[in-house]
Design a protein around this nucleic acid. Structure first.
Length: 545
RNA sequence: UGGGGUGUCGCCAAGCGGUAAGGCACCGGGUUUUGAUCCCGGCAUACGCAGGUUCGAAUCCUGCCACCCCAGCCA
């Protein structure tokens, strides 16, 4: 976490040293039109991180200028996400807090002949914008007298016109090479109820007009945004240079995060949520912060990940392995261990002397004895993973097969003597002998089995729902137009597992199921009566058959 | 096609004229009652390409090439 270096931090450091700014003020400006993703986390870590490191302040500012797409639900969810990530915002603001100020700045532009009310249709505005190579054509309303513009704008705000009848446009240059500068729309009429200002307004300012002014009004010293806004920077500067606002923040762009096998598309996720393709915005397969949280990721993991990916202007697509590494890295020391069998194959200990089980003790964490121990039961009736038995194993197989021995983790060594099969020849039960003197921790048997497998007592084991999550898409880089068909049909596999009771009884919520992976008690569906575990990530597996 | 950007190992990413950091991944080996962890070692004569300047270039210059963004009354 310490000593993060990137071109933006270098810039901030330089500005501070050169006295260009006296302190640092950043802002994280989400539009409340969906849930935050891990892509936003990159921006959050950057903005809040810089303020923390340089003793500055960060505004959480909701960019709520489009009432058609935004809602209170999203505002609330975003606040919860940021809170969860562990960042303290100095102040929460809304672009809508500045609607009055913005209106006055617009009047100022009109008064200076730098904005006009255009009464063309949206189609005409688009048709006269020109192309990459052709200049645009000036609107017939472009030279409207200032007084008329002022009056028309007043009437727009007063609600005298229908949606689309007029817009307020900046009067810049229809021949500009940068299309953003060809008389951009500043205000449009929208008779829609806003989640905060209700029906107070029926005209709403556009992003390009709003964002720079809000930054300036809040004294933002470094306005950080993603690469796709590079073209908008010229307009950002134009607005600030042509209004009476006293402060002029620099806009600095960095590349957004792309992750393999997923997308960061709010629009696509909304569709998935609405069509039931996923359980909700917090579906553990989604790269939303709510989804990652429900999957079992912690804020520390996300922040560690963000510190490892860096900040540059290069387009990127980070491998999932890095995110998974961050999860395992944090869980290796933190997570208590336990045993669960996802696909049980019954094992009967034929020479077990009693029908009574015996209690064994096993450490919660082999390397952290201070975590204590839990009790596991051993007896005649057990189960191992179906994958841990093979009739005719390959050369270096280290699990159970006919006639071979294997150690039951924290228990005894057993030998497979007989395989019971069903009519299809499928193994349905293993009849094994155990070696009483091979008890874990006090083994005097001298036997050297070639492997260790996890197991659970069938008489005391608890049935649990285990959800095995995998990548959302089956391709590393989903293409925008084929996303639906590229979804991974096996992104969720539900299993009825047999787990040791201590796992359910324990206070902890994240565990390592030995040899399988890290799992998290589902925060909404898990209960002692109906245990539900989400797989956060598998263990690394170097086994090559 | 005009404008704005970016090109360093499979994926991220340092480097800012003095002779290629680091992380992830991967490959060996050791330890191991998790094929995990941990430990040790390996992994770009090479920086999109071609010229040039220089004693010396990933870093400077010129010319190409590739990729990304922009023609919403979205953000």
């Amino acid at each position: 976490m310490e000593d993060l270096r990137d071109f933006i931090r270098d810039r901030v450091r330089r500005d501070l040293a050169d006295g260009v700014v006296e302190g640092v003020v950043t802002r994280f400006p989400p539009e409340p039109n969906g849930y935050l993703t891990i892509g936003h986390a990159k921006s959050i870590c950057l903005n809040f991180g810089i303020a923390e490191e340089f003793g500055g302040n960060t505004y959480l500012r909701f960019d709520d200028t489009n009432p058609l797409k935004e809602s209170q639900e999203f505002v609330d969810a975003i606040r919860r996400n940021i809170d969860w990530l562990g960042f303290d915002w100095g102040t929460v603001t809304f672009a809508s807090d500045y609607f009055d100020d913005l209106y006055r700045f617009a009047e100022e532009l009109i008064d200076n002949g730098l904005a006009y009310v255009d009464s063309q249709s949206a189609q005409d505005v688009a048709a006269t914008r020109g192309s990459f190579t052709e200049p645009g054509r000036e609107s017939p309303y472009r030279n409207r007298p200032i007084d008329e513009n002022r009056e028309l704008f007043r009437r727009m705000r007063a609600g005298e016109f229908a949606d689309g009848e007029h817009v307020l446009r900046a009067r810049i240059d229809m021949g500009a090479a940068n299309l953003v500068m060809r008389d951009p729309v500043l205000y449009r009429i929208r008779h829609a109820t806003h989640h905060r200002t209700g029906d107070d307004w029926c005209i709403y300012p556009m992003y390009d007009f709003t964002h720079c002014l809000c930054d300036a009004l809040e004294g933002v010293t470094h306005s950080l945004c993603t690469l796709e806004f590079e073209n908008n920077r010229e307009l950002y500067d134009w607005v600030l240079d042509n209004t009476g606002v006293e402060f002029h923040p620099p806009q600095i762009e960095f590349s957004r995060l792309n992750l393999e096998y997923t997308v960061m598309s709010t629009r696509f996720f909304r569709m998935l949520v609405e069509r039931g393709g996923v359980a909700g915005w917090d579906d553990p397969r989604l790269p939303t912060l709510s989804g990652l949280r429900r999957r079992g990721y912690t804020p520390e993991m996300i922040r560690d990940f963000c510190s490892r990916i860096g900040v540059t202007k290069q387009e990127n697509r980070v491998e999932m392995e890095l995110l998974e590494f961050c999860a395992r890295n944090a869980l290796e020391d933190a997570a208590p261990r336990g045993m669960a069998v996802l696909d049980p194959l019954p094992v009967t200990i034929t020479n077990y002397p009693s029908d009574e089980d015996e209690v064994l003790e096993a450490p919660w964490h082999q390397k952290r004895p201070e975590l204590g121990t839990r009790r596991i039961t051993f007896g005649r009736s057990l189960a191992i993973e179906r994958d841990d038995f093979m009739e005719s194993p390959p050369r270096r197989y280290r699990r159970l097969s006919p006639g071979e021995m294997v150690r039951l983790r924290h228990g005894f060594i057993i030998r497979c003597d007989e395989v019971i099969r069903d009519v299809d020849g499928e193994a349905v039960e293993l009849r094994c002998a155990y070696f009483p003197e091979s008890k874990s921790g006090s083994d005097t048997s001298g036997l050297r089995p070639k492997g260790v497998v996890h197991w659970v007592s069938r008489s005391s084991g608890v049935s649990a729902d285990v959800r095995l999550y995998d990548r959302l898409f089956s391709v590393a880089a989903p293409s925008p137009d084929e996303m639906e068909s590229q979804l991974n049909p096996e992104s969720l596999v539900a299993r009825k597992a047999l787990v040791e009771p201590a796992l359910v009884e324990a206070e902890a919520s994240r565990f390592q199921f030995e040899r399988l992976g890290y799992f998290y008690k589902d925060p909404v569906e898990h209960s002692a009566a109906t245990p539900v575990f989400n797989r956060i990530v598998t263990l690394r597996d170097s086994y090559r058959p």
